[in-house]
Computed example of a mutant assay.
Amino acid sequence: MTARLLAALLAGLLTPVTAVAVAVDGPAWTATPGPGGDRPYIYAEGAPGAVLEDTLAVTNPGTEPLTVRLRADGEGSRIALAAPSVTVPPRTRAEVPLTVTVPPDAVPGDHRAAVTASSGGHESRVPIHLRVSGPLLAALTVEDVSLSGGTIRYTLVNRGNTVLSPRVTITADGLFGEVLRRAPGGLPAELLPAGRISLTENWRDRPALDAVDVRVRATAAGAPAAQGTASVRFVPWAWCASALALVAAAVALWLRRRRGRLPPAYEQATSDRPLARSGA
């Protein structure tokens, strides 16, 4: 840790807090990106080997001093905090300096990290979004599409090096036209590079008798549209078995009744007719 960062922490980057809204059931303190705490995450961008600086804000709206422990979790980067913990006076916000060092061999694209603050059994995670300079590729694929038991299964895979926010449309075409069009929920807000997620979608009103092609189409900003397909035939085997049983019973009854209608003279003649003899 540089002497400047330590000096900044020891000097106490403490800002009085005059009014802080605290939820009744919420935590008594917050950890956010500094300095004002109005950013959803810390953003850093640089080339391999770069050292990037930012701050973490810890706010104590209570009436007693608060000690918060800090832990850095990096992925594709190295995060250093000015200290492993910070003690914040009552109604005060402390800004803790931090650095993000991009490894010399870092892969270009998007990486994720975070700083976790903990105190009194409560944890607050501050995301860090790092973009390593270099060629960027946005690529999304749809794989392993299948349909079984009324459940459509598919997998989304991020084949690029940028974070994607996928959107999906599921359609199905039968012998007589479209039988399904749906935009499923439950999709991930972010799909990290090299990340994959397997998803399912229930299809309760599927046809009972049809040949269907299911298509899963996925899109994401900056990436070409991707599609996966699966074909399935719906056959009501229980209904078919019942129908065949009814047909067989009807044929047996018809044959029985037909034999019962034979004239008595015909049956007598048939029974009295001598067997043909072979030979000269």
Rank of each mutant, 00 (worst) to 15 (best):
V126F: 05
V100D: 03
L175A: 14
N161H: 00
T162F: 02
L199R: 10
A117M: 02
P40C: 08
I152E: 12
G260Q: 14
G74V: 03
Q227P: 01
V22P: 00
V145I: 09
S271G: 04
V251P: 04
L244C: 07
E201K: 01
A245D: 08
T15H: 13
D272F: 02
G185E: 09
A269L: 12
R78K: 06
G26H: 06
N60F: 02
R277W: 05
L14I: 00
D38T: 08
P135N: 00
A280P: 15
G260E: 13
L199V: 06
R204P: 08
D210I: 09
Q268V: 09
P188Y: 07
L180G: 00
V235Y: 06
S124P: 03
E95N: 13
C240M: 12
G150N: 08
V24F: 09
V24E: 15
T169V: 14
N158M: 04
A250F: 06
T169M: 08
R215E: 12
P236K: 03
L136G: 11
V22C: 05
Q227V: 14
I152S: 08
S198Q: 15
A3F: 00
R196F: 02
F176G: 06
G46P: 05
P35I: 05
R125D: 09
S231N: 07
T99V: 08
A72R: 04
A225L: 03
A250G: 15
